[in-house]
Design a protein around this nucleic acid. Structure first.
Length: 278
DNA sequence: CGGCCAACCTGTGCGC
DNA sequence: TGCGCACAGGTTGGCC
């Protein structure tokens, strides 16, 4: 699930337990996720203090006091679980792959059934050049993501606009759900060619992407308090989607009885309303 | 380079 | 109840 809003929510949930706190125990419970853990992973983390947590695209960047950065990606099924200081942490289960304990007594577990996630370490001054990060496009909530940028970057691209939105080089952090939802809001067909999204369409798509992500973050934020108190699990949230997962249902703004269709584009499900989206 | 597809891995839900 | 298949929110690497 984790797209930009979920990763942002996870970062915000982790921050109070990690920023300014020191890892006193790190347990790596298997040798790899998507990639092998780097050499000396546990040793390099133990005793380090976290300075700040930051999100870039779908990556969680944890800046440490020795100028290294712990890079975390949640993949498809990665979650973080927090046990606040003073409470008893559960025993790690089959899919709890990494356990962090802070000096204050918080226990954070990384859980990932499918293991498409990753953790690695990089020197802070080399972070921009890291292979995983160097080609990522602008943050959709930042100023660089504008209709002129979008028109320019999509120029000449014959793939679908849906596939282009999923390309992290075009824009950072948009995944399958929010690509569908943003296109719905913008009234743009996911089948449309990417380079046909310029001018007025780009002017509609940019705020559509921004707004849907901002709303999802706001919702994550509003459920976060309850989330941490109940079971401490961070990562999966119930959102109301207009089209995603709603095949054969009427879309919210449809007055014509037509319903949401599911198609497959480059191997991923796309949901859209053929009447509203052209 | 652009674009498509398989692969990575586990779990779940559905039809038969 | 069991089996096989489709599918799941991400990303990469290989191929044409």
């Amino acid at each position: 699930m984790p797209e930009l809003p979920e990763v942002e929510t996870v970062c915000r949930g982790l921050a109070p337990f990690l920023e300014g706190h020191r890892f006193v125990r790190v347990e790596q419970r298997r040798k790899n996720l998507r990639f092998p853990f780097p050499k000396g992973f546990v040793k390099r983390l133990q005793g380090r203090q976290v300075e700040r947590i930051h999100r870039r695209a779908k990556y969680i960047l944890t800046y440490l006091d020795d100028s290294t950065v712990l890079i975390i990606h949640l993949g498809m099924s990665g979650r973080m679980t927090i046990t606040a200081p003073g409470n008893t942490a559960p025993e790690p289960g089959k899919h709890d792959h990494v356990v962090f304990e802070t000096e204050a007594g918080a226990v954070i577990m990384y859980n990932d059934v499918r293991r498409f996630g990753l953790m690695t370490l990089e020197q802070e001054d080399k972070l921009d050049q890291h292979p995983l990060l160097k080609d990522i496009g602008p943050e959709p909530l930042g100023n660089q993501f504008s209709d002129s940028y979008l028109s320019a970057v999509l120029k000449g691209r014959k793939t679908s606009i849906k596939a282009a939105l999923l390309d992290q080089k075009v824009v950072a952090g948009v995944g399958n759900i929010y690509a569908c939802e943003a296109l719905y809001r913008a009234g743009i067909s996911p089948r449309r060619t990417a380079d046909s999204v310029a001018g007025k369409r780009a002017e509609r798509l940019v705020p559509a992407v921004r707004n849907v992500l901002e709303e999802a973050i706001a919702k994550g934020g509003s459920t976060l308090r309850d989330y941490v108190q109940t079971d401490g699990e961070l990562g999966y949230f119930q959102h109301e989607f207009a089209v995603y997962g709603r095949e054969n249902e009427p879309c919210p703004d449809c007055d014509c009885g037509k319903s949401v269709q599911r198609i497959v584009q480059s191997g991923r499900s796309t949901f859209y309303c053929a009447k509203r989206q052209r």
